[in-house]
Write a protein that binds this DNA or RNA. Structure first.
Lengths: 225, 225
DNA sequence: CCCGCGTCCTGTACTAAGTGCAAGCGTCCC
DNA sequence: GGGACGCTTGCACTTAGTACAGGACGCGGG
């Protein structure tokens, strides 16, 4: 059984696997070591500490987002593609938003994305400053959406750890949320018409928000053009 | 020195103070006990555990947001007021977004807010479903904005813990971010014209995003009206 | 062929923090 | 006055991050 010699890249990749499967809280150095067939602290040779490892994982993941060909698409299609791609990546890795909240994270991967997004809005004809704000705003939309999504994932995961019937535990949480919501008139009306759960937002909420936002940007361009 | 007898409300209030001052990571039960002049574990009689305490703190904080008088304002002013209020609360308590990412949190405070926001968009004439989506989207905008803000707060705080000259450490982080950003053409251009830091978004980015979003909603209403 | 050195990994142990447990203490009611 | 109950305490167990002190392995020089 030869030692394949750990590398930083492999450690990061494995960490991402664990993060995807277990969430930010589920990542611990001992488990990571075991998964790599190494001693609990073997990784410390390659990465400074856990914080650093998470930083590396975050930046790695940014590279999953495909950037649009500049110029090949209109600005709106490009902006949509980027925002949608970000949204999808955030859904694929719900721990990302947890890591970003409360940590000052930047890096090559994020910069690459930011640059492309900025390009899209500049192509729309916005001033540099406005393009900057527009980029940040569409970024926020995806990020905010991910906060809610990661909460739901966390619920689902917690349910699996608590023992007992997962569906049961999940239903309890949702029932409690529903019961609380039911004491507010409009939420109750929504619950009654939707039937389903209150926190289970329709899947295309993000698309709705993005569309409205981009419509607003278009109006701004038209007004000045 | 009589014991003022701990209450759950006081524990939550004190926890919020610590959270505001030290962030989510800064809250630990021992420190909380000391601050309350109690034994490290005295609070366990009043709150189930730390997770539960954070839940209580989160819901408490939702009540800080002032709700608009229904009907007294137009829908747009009402929606703006709510979103802005949410944004301000999230800035006042940067740990809030950290707590929401990765935990399924609901409660009376949040429901109360959701209901009011929903009312504003229904007043705008959107269908129930669309109002729901619009509410969720403006929610996301604030949430996403808060993620970035909490990251900056975390940076500032970390700087104070690291010893050494705070301004120095902070500058290092920002310098590194700047250096990375500088290898991307558009980001570099922005840096050069802005002079300041790349991650220091203009303060009104949130307002910009919200305005564009609401413009988009207006257009949607006009198109159908 | 052996020595020494740099690279990488292992095991051990220390520390911080969440929290269950059972005993202690005060207050209030009977 | 005494007991019960509400609240607090200290202790101890557990999980997890990580420092440290070596040990194994391979490689170039003597």
């Amino acid at each position: 059984m030869q030692k394949p010699t750990l590398t930083a890249a492999q450690i990061v990749r494995t960490a991402i696997e664990i993060l995807d499967a277990e969430g930010l809280d589920g990542l611990n150095m001992r488990a990571l070591g075991k998964r790599l067939n190494s001693a609990p602290t073997a990784m410390y040779w390659h990465v400074k500490n856990k914080d650093n490892l998470v930083r590396l994982a975050v930046d790695e993941v940014w590279h999953e987002i495909a950037l649009p060909d500049p110029g090949a698409l209109g600005w709106r299609a490009a902006a949509t593609k980027l925002a949608t791609g970000l949204n999808e990546t955030l859904h694929r890795h719900p721990w990302l938003v947890q890591a970003m909240a409360g940590h000052f994270l930047y890096g090559e991967g994020k910069s690459r994305f930011d640059d492309s997004l900025l390009a899209a809005y500049e192509a729309a004809g916005l001033s540099a400053e406005q393009a900057d704000q527009a980029a940040a705003a569409s970024f926020m939309l995806a990020l905010g959406n991910a906060v809610g999504a990661s909460a739901n994932v966390a619920l689902a995961r917690k349910v699996n750890l608590d023992g007992g019937d997962p569906a049961e535990v999940m239903r309890e949480s949702i029932d409690e949320a529903t019961r609380i919501a039911a004491s507010f008139p409009r939420l109750r009306a929504r619950l009654e018409s939707a039937g389903a759960g209150y926190n289970e937002a329709p899947g295309d909420t993000f698309a709705f928000g993005l569309t409205a936002f981009l419509d607003g940007i278009e109006r701004r361009i038209a007004a000045r053009g």
